[in-house]
Design a protein around this nucleic acid. Structure first.
Lengths: 208, 208
DNA sequence: AATTCCAGAGAACAGTTGTTAACTGGATGA
DNA sequence: TCATCCAGTTAACAACTGTTCTCTGGAATT
């Protein structure tokens, strides 16, 4: 088992994290395809060549950022969508999860929204892969719900994708509302709630 | 009235269009915030300084591209969403509109998807403004529909935004499917159709 | 026919970029 | 204790960037 790392490895991970943090901060106001290697090392306070000790390239760093941003979110999503509670309760759980995550990690959310369709292929693919995982996790959870009786597998996945996409749209709206008066955030929360509610109503009558 | 332009103005507009075309082609594989002025002029085949005769800056060119990509789409959307035909008919009209537009102007669609959350503020704002216009146009059309009786204005706008966002998601999926076997495009079309159908079912039972 | 206008060219500027190679010095393991 | 390792440094490279000022030659105006 991996016990406590030597002082050597510990320092390396610390520097690596500094790279990720600095890059994320710089990406608040530009996109990954314009982020320079020297720009990042300058922000960290190390020599340009130190970069290569941690990442092969800027796209490589971007992929690491995708994991940092979305990797820890899977258990939270599974728990939030789980079948405990009625649908209205699950909707408000979901909206609150998004609101809190955006408030706690705004620059990660911005990064994902920006690079999902951004100019760097490996990063687009990493994000696409993570979102597909989310959709599949939601699909599995939905399939366990008694309301999914009589649904085709394909339709359950269709619904799961709809939910996931809706989450992302709401996250992006919360992000825009972050640097604005608090009542703006409430409006976004109410909008997101009603949209999820409408989708859920459509789900309830899908088999009519 | 603006009659036929002199040979002078005509040539200028031609060069301007060459800038827009070249930029759009370059933006297939990078994002606007990394697009260089010299890169564009090199692709057009003119001196770097010629750029300033047409645009103040690269973001300025980006805003022009937003208008080119979305400006002509408003009448089409209005016609497609209009209240003629039953809802199933309107859904297939909408899906076909998107499929055709993506097939006819793939790089414009890619540009919008990429820069909607991209690193260049004026361009983000221009896209946001156009999307808000679409949502409002859909809202007005929906409000005319008898099915909207008893709906609050806010809820109609909520639904309109849901439709517009859904259009964009579908457009992005069509784009990914473009360079793939034809049956992939059919799958996207069927997915988009079913998602719109589910939303419409939710709409029909909203007031229950 | 003479004058004004202006899209585009040309040259030069100080800064920036990614990548290479060879190095230093403290932690690591024998 | 001594040899090895390796995160980070230093120096140098050719190539590129946006922006300035000055100039040119054909179209537009008088």
């Amino acid at each position: 088992m991996s016990h406590t790392l030597g002082a050597r490895q510990a320092q390396k991970q610390k520097t690596r994290q500094a790279f990720l943090d600095a890059a994320l901060a710089l990406l608040e106001e530009q996109s990954l395809s314009s982020l320079g290697l020297r720009e990042v090392t300058r922000a960290v306070g190390v020599a340009p060549t130190a970069f290569y000790r941690h990442f092969r390239s800027i796209p490589d760093l971007g992929v690491a950022l995708v994991d940092e941003a979305l990797g820890s979110l899977h258990p939270m999503v599974r728990e939030t969508v789980s079948t405990t509670g009625d649908s209205e309760e699950r909707i408000s759980r979901a909206v609150e999860l998004i609101a809190h995550y955006v408030a706690a990690h705004p620059s990660h959310v911005r990064f994902i929204a920006r690079e999902r369709h951004g100019g760097v292929q490996p990063v687009r693919e990493a994000i696409g892969g993570q979102l597909a995982r989310f959709a599949d996790e939601v699909r599995v959870t939905l399939a366990q719900d008694p309301g999914a009786a009589g649904w085709s597998d394909d339709d359950v996945l269709m619904l799961a994708r709809l939910y996931v996409d809706q989450m992302l749209i709401s996250a992006s709206l919360f992000l825009e509302a972050l640097e604005r008066p608090a009542d703006e955030r409430d409006r976004v929360a109410r909008l997101a709630t009603r949209q999820l509610r409408l989708i859920t109503i459509g789900r309830d009558h899908w088999l009519d």
